[in-house]
């Protein structure tokens, strides 16, 4: 079960502790998802993010089976998915068909695998919807290391990734390697999925990637401003969403995403009224 803040209150953990940890986990994740999410939207990779997240459930199952950290299991499967998709891209399958096959096969295999583990009481819902209020200090370290890594990679390759997004041919003519840039982004996405699976869960990762970018779009005139704007909106959604979840006693991850949705609606209405 996803625990609501109210339920957690009754537990031994101190309020400040888990609440502050949850906020920092959300911020660490936003560090990676906001700029990466813009590239995901521009490159039309939203379904890839979704598919990788679903596949990561198989990694969670594997991790539980061999008693490995959840993060490591999810990372291995997500990376394998990223590399597989990068190398199979353009080999006869429409890439969304290929993604669909990979994503749903691994999700199904993961769920079946977990059902065999009778000795462990596995709470898979937690990995589908995340459990940001149960984040430990160790999780926090992993999230900030992973988020920092992804963020650094994205800002380091920003111009190159933008050029490849606009035109692989132009990028090639400028001496860039489009396949390598695409692989880097896929790997960054895999790391993001792995760190996010515990926080917002497999089903909501794509929301954290796509919605802030979509909400920022009407407010920005350059790619950089859109990425910064998406970061700002994500921060507001994390802090606002967690506070709302606490006040209203609602599940945390979905509340954060609902905040993002409200911002998306507001920015869409704003841009519609300007026309």
């Amino acid at each position: 079960m996803i625990m609501t803040p109210g339920q957690l209150m009754g537990q031994t953990m101190g309020l400040d502790d888990f609440f502050i940890r949850a906020i920092f986990a959300g911020l660490g994740l936003a560090l990676a998802t906001a700029p990466l999410g813009c590239l995901v939207v521009w490159r039309r990779m939203a379904f890839f993010g979704d598919a990788t997240a679903h596949a990561a459930i198989l990694g969670v199952a594997l991790a539980l089976a061999i008693d490995m950290p959840i993060f490591a299991g999810a990372l291995i499967v997500a990376l394998a998915m990223a590399i597989l998709v990068s190398s199979l891209g353009g080999r006869g399958y429409a890439s969304d068909t290929l993604l669909g096959v990979l994503a749903h096969s691994s999700l199904a295999l993961g769920l079946v695998a977990v059902s065999f583990m009778t000795d462990i009481r596995v709470d898979l819902i937690g990995f589908l919807f995340g459990d940001i209020l149960a984040v430990t200090r160790q999780d926090l370290l992993v999230i900030w290391l992973g988020g920092g890594l992804v963020s650094a990679l994205v800002w380091w390759r920003w111009s190159a990734a933008l050029t490849v997004t606009i035109s692989p041919d132009l990028a090639q003519a400028a001496g860039l390697n489009p396949r390598r840039e695409a692989l880097r982004l896929n790997l960054a996405l895999a790391v993001t999925v792995a760190i996010a699976i515990k926080v917002v869960g497999a089903l909501l990762i794509a929301a954290m990637l796509v919605i802030p970018a979509a909400a920022a779009r009407p407010l920005a005139s350059t790619p950089e401003r859109m990425a910064l704007m998406a970061s700002g909106l994500s921060v507001i959604a994390v802090i606002g969403g967690l506070n709302l979840a606490f006040t209203l006693d609602t599940p945390a991850g979905p509340t954060i995403v609902s905040c993002l949705t409200a911002m998306f609606l507001a920015s869409s209405l704003l841009s519609a009224s300007r026309r």
Partner: peptide
């Protein structure tokens, strides 16, 4: 250029 990409 995808319309989701703002660029001058």
């Amino acid at each position: 250029i995808d319309p989701t990409l703002p660029i001058t």
